[in-house]
Design a protein around this nucleic acid. Structure first.
Lengths: 215, 215
DNA sequence: CACAGTTTCAAACACATGTTTGAAAAGTAC
DNA sequence: GTACTTTTCAAACATGTGTTTGAAACTGTG
């Protein structure tokens, strides 16, 4: 078994390098040779430890997925402990605080996982098809239920839509997927600083959540 | 020159097939053989007409880019003709109407271009680095200026942020990048119907735009 | 030390990639 | 119908891909 310190170090180095490169260039544009070279390990090490490139991607993802989902639940728990029926603002705060905390703790891979998530929405990887709903189904339901208590005027369906828009906005914002970077030569928004993104984004999404029903 | 009817038909078939496949699988995961097979042409035809795979991508993109930017400007012009200082709602309507019209006119490639745009935000292609700002710089400035007149309480910087959030939300929503599809086993939102997306999204983003400043 | 299991490594594997070639076919103009 | 250009095609090109191999190096244990 891969229990020795050296072995753990090797597979961890691979995970770190792969995480960074997958986020930067995407899955298909990142080759095994690039990953192993960046990690300073032999080409065969990936297949030795993770079976395949797909297995590596899954491992990269799952290393962060569980901690993040637990962070999201913990922050919602805390919000509901302070206030049994948290407002939209407080719910969004739970969300953004989870993302920010994820980015601040180096052990959690910084902002990389949020970016990887945002990439995965656009380019879903088959290896995640079944593990993601298992892990994030409860998180989604909990947040949607909380939003329902905060905005009782919205139907179940419209709550799902609002959560969809909310998470799209949050993940894309934190991932730094800047539309303006593509559209304008010198965009003046700095979408790279998570704290700034969170402050700018908050009034926007909170007002959006509280908006009257589409009818 | 490629001016005969047959030649136009061939390159157009390639563009159509490539557009669909690039949207579906992304640039790197779409091979030349897949494209030419889907288009029913010989492998060498792509290099003959477009020089390279990168050249093909650029051609695919640019075929739609100009019509779409003109649609966006035309709808904003119309809104400002009806009302010299359009509200946030009317501005968003100009935006969504452009996207919906793009999707409804078959000659414009349906919803495909919006999806391609959304993909490109996450995975920018070098071939577009210089042509996009040239084409969409004015569009962005016009919309941001209109938003500034509608919401005079926001600073120039915050207006750019709002436009960033607005366009992120719109493009991702129309592209059908459904967070819930990844997070939940049976999502109840149908993010594929553009008219429905537009109706659900409108109150959310309009309220977001009109929100008080982040301060 | 010697033995077992674990990990590393250079090399090769079979296959897929984008691109080029040169000749055949189709089309155009005088 | 002949000369010329444009377009198509099968084949090959060089290179990159993920993966496998089998031996060497290392590890911890009795």
């Amino acid at each position: 078994m891969a229990e020795s310190a050296k072995a753990l170090e090797t597979s961890a180095r691979i995970l770190d390098a792969a995480e960074k490169l997958f986020v930067e260039h995407g899955f298909h544009a990142t080759s095994m040779r690039l990953i192993t070279q960046a990690a300073g390990v032999n080409i065969a090490a990936v297949n030795y430890y993770f079976g395949s490139k797909d297995g590596l991607f899954k491992a990269v993802f799952e290393r962060r997925a569980e901690p993040f989902s637990q962070l999201m639940l913990a922050h919602l728990d805390e919000a509901e402990r302070v206030n049994p029926v948290p407002s939209a603002l407080q719910i969004v705060h739970a969300f953004t605080n989870a993302a920010l905390q994820m980015g601040n703790e180096p052990d959690y891979g910084g902002q990389l996982f949020v970016k990887l998530l945002a990439r995965t929405f656009v380019e879903p990887h088959p290896a995640l098809k079944e593990s993601m709903p298992r892990r994030y189904g409860e998180v989604s339901r909990r947040y949607i239920a909380a939003l329902g208590r905060a905005m009782p005027h919205l139907s179940e369906l419209e709550l799902h839509w609002r959560f969809h828009f909310l998470s799209s906005a949050l993940f894309n914002a934190f991932a730094g997927n800047n539309v303006l970077r593509l559209f304008m030569a010198q965009p003046i928004v700095n979408a790279r600083d998570p704290e700034l993104v969170a402050r700018m984004l908050l009034p926007f999404v909170v007002a959006g959540l509280n908006a009257p029903s589409a009818g």
